[in-house]
Design a protein around this nucleic acid. Structure first.
Lengths: 197, 197, 197, 197
DNA sequence: AATGAATGAGGGTTCATTCAT
DNA sequence: GATGAATGAACCCTCATTCAT
């Protein structure tokens, strides 16, 4: 199938960028990892930024697809939340390189490519908001829902960075723990403003 | 006051490293920001690593001091948890540069300096564990407490990265929201294993 | 012919290093002398040390080859000694830069490269010892032969440093003089210990 | 006694320059070795060149004085030659740093200082020529005597560089060996031109 | 499709030296 | 007499990128 060489390049870029960070990742090392010469790599790709874009674009596609697949069969809002948490952590466990780049390096993109990636990230966020809306017993405003989703994703991403993901079992247990904690918190607590006084 | 010049250097390094990332931060730019020539900067500092260390060391000292000050007057465990959340987010709001470096760049340190910073980070974590232990109604094991603390800090750091901290009021409201959510979750939910029947 | 560009680089390095000394020789000047840009030079060579090694390695190869060629047709020990002296001084006259680096800068190498060069230097010394052994009428011990060879080479190298080599004729005359002096001394004088009283 | 601090500076320079080579010797390290601050050193000395000059000037004075003292009591030419050889090798053994700088670094001086040092070096050479003239049985021309002296000094300096000077005993034995070898060669062999028929 | 050759820009670091105090 | 502060110049080296082949 055409594209195999191309895939190998993107995978090589993903690995090197995740390990070294975007700026520290040298195109030479990416080319070497992909089994090409330096100039050979430039035949497939126009520059370093494009490599970062390709990695991000494909990784986000996989993440969104995984989420859709997991949520597909679950009509109940609670189950869909659990699915989101499980999928996200599974992705963090199965593709740490991809998630690291999504969270750490995406801001280094510029121009049109940045917008394109930002759109996909927003899309992912929107799915979360939708789930929480269906789940909310307190009549939260859109802004409050948005904030709560950010809270959840922030938590998940923060967790993914931490070095305590060890085995598949861990990931499942962790997902259950996180979902339970967030769920009972989200369902019990009234929105922020009313809590402060 | 003694140390003023030195302070300006460390602050300059903090700003540049936070904005560009450690590897992309050029010592020339740090020197310029500090109002010194390149060689002039080297009069105070031995190398780039030392700059990163200085920034991290001082930032962590400030963070720990702020936590201690906030927790000092609160005997009640719940109040101490709220204090931790509030302090952490206040720090994230007041010193975004420092927190960014703490979370993103500290692993780039090597050798003895890395250990020293790791120790301070561990110290901070330990305070969190202690608070949750006093709070726990479920007889969680030390490992479960450690995991839950990581959950909380992961959430806080994840949030801090997100670009939705705007004003002081926001920070306070957010802190209340986060504390409420985590608290009710932590108090209500049994530890992970028992939740996945 | 393959290797031409590479040869030009090594020759340029030899000239600059000999003139300035290794540490004072700037890679920029070597590149300029070789007709390349700075980065262009690094396409062929990994670093300054490698340049020094290349110069030394090739120079010692030429020196050893010249010695072998000169000694080849001379079965008589005396003729072989004369050949060694003549070859060494001819080399000093024809390639002052190479000899200067061999004598002055080789210790600046480190690691594996240093061992490799040291081995070639030792090889050269061994040929001298072998010649003197065949020539010795006093039954000198291996240690005494080694010491005498060092004496001879020390003399030759000391001479080569001195600025009184002018023309080809000079070199030949000098070689004859040195050989005669050393020979009659070596043949006449008993080893050191017996001479002292 | 005034000058003590000054002496310490010159000794420090001698040690550092001998160990590192002139260009690689940093003024900072010399100052540290002398127990002064960097700027403090500049109070005694105008620049790096002056340090090299001072070291060379004093070292040559000591070498000349040692030669004069050794030759003083020996009217017989042979004894004076032995004295020269012995003194030179003793100097090489007692003050390897000084001799190394005399032989390796003196050419790095420039201008008037270089001439002054060159004069002292020539003075030393002249003593050798005088001794050989008194010793010569072949009616050598001044040029031939000059060449022979260079031969002898080249040999001695070449030897001094070699790493086989170990103990005082060694130095004495070596001196006897060298003197015997050179003497019998010099006395036996006719000058170069007549030897190559 | 693929590569070796080549480069300009910029990186961190060191150095000899000056000067106000 | 002695020093900390400060600097311009130069160092080796790496990088993303281009181009002829």
């Amino acid at each position: 199938m055409i594209g195999t060489r191309y895939d190998r390049i993107v995978k090589a870029a993903e690995g090197v960028i995740a390990r070294r960070g975007f700026h520290q990742a040298s195109i030479r090392e990416i080319a070497r990892t992909a089994g090409l010469s330096l100039a050979g790599l430039y035949h497939y790709v126009h520059g370093k930024d494009e490599l970062l874009f390709l990695v991000l674009d494909r990784a986000l596609d996989r993440l969104l697809a995984a989420l859709d697949a997991a949520v597909a069969g679950s009509p109940a809002p609670e189950a869909r939340l659990r699915a989101l948490v499980r999928t996200h952590l599974a992705f963090a466990f199965a593709e740490p390189a991809a998630l690291k780049i999504i969270n750490r390096d995406w801001e280094l993109l510029g121009g049109a490519r940045r917008s394109e990636i930002a759109a996909k990230r927003a899309e992912y966020l929107r799915r979360g908001v939708a789930i929480l809306r269906d789940l909310d017993p307190h009549g939260r405003t859109p802004d409050e829902l948005y904030s709560a989703t950010n809270l959840l994703l922030g938590m998940l991403n923060g967790i993914a960075t931490r070095p305590f993901l060890r085995a598949d079992a861990d990931a499942r247990a962790l997902a259950a723990e996180v979902a339970a904690l967030f769920l009972s918190g989200f369902l019990a607590a009234a929105p922020a403003e009313e809590v402060t006084p």
